[in-house]
Design a protein around this nucleic acid. Sequence first.
RNA 1: GCCCGUGUAAUCCAAUUGGCAGAGAUAGGCGACUUAAAAUCGCUCCAGUGCGGGUUCGAAUCCCGCCACGGGCACCA
Length: 864
Amino acid sequence: MASQETRYSPAELEPRRQKLWAEMGLDRTPEPSKERRENFYALSMFPYPSGNLHMGHVRNYVITDVIARSQRLKGKRVLHPMGWDAFGLPAENAAIERGVDPAGWTEQNIAQMREQLSRLGLSIDWDREVTTCRPNYYRWTQWLFLQFLDAGLAYRKEATVNWDPVDQTVLANEQVDADGRSWRSGAIVEKRKLRQWFLKITAVADELLDDLASLDGWPERVRTMQANWIGRSTGATLRFALEQDPSEVVEVFTTRPDTAFGVSYVVLAPEHELVDQLTSAAQQAEVADFRQELQSISEQDRLAEDRPKRGVATGGYVLHPFSGERVPVWIADYVLPDYGTGAVMGVPAHDNRDFAFARQYDLPITTVVVSLGSSEPSDAPNEAFTEVGELVNSAQFNGLQGEAAKEAVIEAAVAAGVGDAKVTYRLRDWLISRQRYWGCPIPVIHCDDCGAVPVPEDQLPVELPADAELDGSGGSPLERHPSWSRVPCPKCGKPARRETDTMDTFMCSSWYYLRYTDAANSELPFSVESTAAWMPVDQYVGGVEHAILHLLYSRFFTKVLKQRQLLNCNEPFRRLLTQGMVQGVTFRNPSTRRYVAPAAVTDPMKPLDPETGEPLEVFFEKMSKSKHNGVDPGTVVERYGADTARMFILFKAPPEKDLEWDDADVEGQYRFLQRIWRLADGAREAGMNLSASLTLPTELSKADQELRRAVHIAIEAISEDLDGEELQFNTAVSELMKLSNAMAGSLASATEAVAQEAVQTFLILLAPFAPHLTDELWEQLGGIGSVHQQQWPLLDAAALVRDTVTVVLQVKGKVRGNLEVPANIDKESLEQLALASDVAQKWLEGNPPRRVIVVPGKLVNLVP
RNA sequence: GCCCGUGUAAUCCAAUUGGCAGAGAUAGGCGACUUAAAAUCGCUCCAGUGCGGGUUCGAAUCCCGCCACGGGCACCA
């Protein structure tokens, strides 16, 4: 009879399996258990619905899906949801450019992306889908804003803020990069003085910083980035009274109160409010010129470190808080108005900046700290001594050292009423106002008599008007709307105006993971019970670009909601995996700097510019349209199937690392899955039936033992890769390949029960990675139910045991031979065997070794 | 300048955390099958782990000093 060979055809099989899963409700979240540890929350950072799924999304969601699927097989109740970060500028810009409706445009994109996502076979519970731009979601974003307002953590103030001239809105500090560019538009931001809404994230700065230590499931570098961003520094304020009016003081912040007696001058930021009062008549013109000049240069230039420090004397004097001596007051560009108190004490002997400044303007340098046990201070040091040490020239503080010196000075300052211990932060309050239409309206009404009045809860949501004019003419579209903002004051009923700013979209994404736990709740954003069951998220997966932004804001929300007793967890994300980028091969002509599309390159081994014939540079870069190096997930899925795409992405690189897209490797994965198909085909033809109940014989042949060993090695290794300290999908896939190689050579000749165990185990282990193929084969081989409803295989430690092991025989640390010995041999016998071996005879030349190192099961090292 | 990460075969990546540098894959070479090609199967070439020291019986792994690349922070008082 001819063989009934079948073909692996993902295009036919994958949609069919997906349909079955949907009918079975396989991805639905089970009722959570009361026992928290039975529940597992697997979460991907939700996407902005641009309408186009890209490879970065695929990598993100496939990683989370493997985790979700494997946890289900391990018997956990899994929550694995998906949603849309759907407010944002692209929708509004599309409206301006093409006259489309932002809501319709967004919904259409969501439908399109949901469709693209569904082709990947992700086990997502779509019943809990969350869309931040829909009133039934943003109603609760508004409700939460009112919680912040009620807690005194939301306030409006006039401040110098970052203005994005391209997107025509303000931005939070976190949304401006080190080069002063907007995270979205890339435009250099401008400074503007505006009245805006802020959330008081600084109120929990200490918790945000200190609790980083508890996040041992987070990458170290993300924790460091957050710590740097929060930037806590501990020190003191000292007050210097004005000479001409001792009731006024200049307050400085310093981390080195112990250097107080080394002050030669005080420097104010040019913007400091006391500058005018301090400036003498003689210095008026010079001070004015200097301030004028600073106005004309950009923030960037002013802050560039390599610039020489510049300043002018105000002609005014203050009095030293301890000695009462006159201290001249300067203004200088290196003192920033919005850090600390906007004023510093100049201690040139012990601060590099002050030292440079003092040198430049010939100001006195007084040494007041010397290194421990050192001699006399040098009169003309050539650099600042910035370490802590022993105080000299410091009156009653002489001889004190290090921290004790700092504390003594602070204590004395407090006692004399001239200073306080003080902690400052780099972190600023979160600016959440945006002058745009497509965002969540801030639920506040401004009344001339009552001030800023919160919209009563029963009037939420404050919905966006559907008929706002979006023509890009500048200014807030809500503000220009003829009627939307005109409402009566909820308190007094007089005509009042709605707040027309919308919220930063990061507000919407700071709590979406809580909504998933209780997505249909119409009474509250989420119940305490539902978050208690699921929170914190067990595994969060997303890009490292949110190391500060989203991840810091979400931690902030969590802490505030806990204080408000709306939530009972301290940190939202227990474990965090930051996946690397997906990069595409890029060809560039080094002389013209132009990117050449890979399709135009005839020989990828020796790439030449099709126009000029010049050789091209080849490298990998983040996929983008302008570089012509994007690979469309849809095309790949169409050609090879979702399982191949998933396998490739997981196998090609460790999850945190950047991944270089390579068509040849994709082919390789496709071939692997085809081999699996043929392997199963063979087993089926040989009559394998997974539902047949077979028992392992007590005596196994050598070959059977080897196959079982391979199976259980795979169970052990893959379990560790998926659930251990470090998630390693690439090695898990290679373990699967190893097992399949072992099976290919031995399955046909193995005892029936051993072969069945091997195939069954293999399919379950592979199921999280290639869910469609494995489910199909499971069915073809007569398995009961779906492969995804099975139990994760149990490790049989006995199967790993070998009768004999090969130990390495070293002489003086160099490998000189092997020894095949019983696995359970004791140390002494192993040593005897080693000494008696030919290798020992040959290399020791009859002399007894000085030392013998025996590592049981591994090696014997003879040291002559 | 400071902090973090990464350097292993032509390429992507492993290495039970101090124990034979190679598991897996891609590409290449050879062979089998084929009239031929593709597919498939089998075999196979290629590194002593970025560099220089050190600790150790033994180092990719630990320590010290460098280099390269990537990322973060940066006049923060």
